[in-house]
Amino acid sequence: MVFEVRDLSFAYPGGKSLLQNLTFSLAASDRVLLRGDNGSGKSTLLLLLMGILAPSSGSVKLNGQESRKLSADQYRGVFYSGQSARESLFGLVPRHDIELWRLAAFGRNGEIDLTTLDDPLAAKLDTPYTSLSGGEMRACANLLLPFFAERFWLLDEPTVGLDTFRQQRFAQICAERAANGGGMLIVSHDPALAEELFDRFLLLENGRLRELK
């Protein structure tokens, strides 16, 4: 799985140019931390990678195919979780979201063993999202990460709102991933996210992407 970005520029309708001529690639085993100021375009870049937004110019390809033209099965190599946890969750309660992930990963006859979920949220799978806190919704969006180790993770601010236990658990999941050679691109401002987890550091600044050594 590889993302290829060539001369990517983007501006929201009526807005000034947010991203200018970005060129970079992501290999399946890259562990990338993307940083940048608020409003610098980090989340927008992820939306462009996933084909949710169309570039103003340039191209974004996933495995050689334009992201905007990907079919559903071509997304099976990526686990994307957006900046808003609620917007990333499906249905009315966490169980609905888990069922959809099960369907996506294992088909109709597959199973996710819910007894293995190492999170207090496992007791709240039938609680409506409207009754969950922001942190719990974020935890819910991260809940199934260990089940999708074979996918490339594109996570936008995955630790925002998490309590200490969940932050530590997320760091542990990422450490396991780093040890197993799994790839990920994480957008985060969280200083607690250990830099040892990553092998590439990107900084988005004034519409340009800079690789930090």
């Binding site: 099976r76 959809l100 996506a104």
Partner: peptide
């Protein structure tokens, strides 16, 4: 539309599912 996109981004093609699903 957002929910349909959520399905697609996870790799679920609605057209391929049986009607019950």
């Amino acid at each position: 539309s957002h929910n349909r996109q959520l399905l697609r981004l996870r790799g679920v093609e609605l057209r391929e599912l049986p009607w019950r699903q």
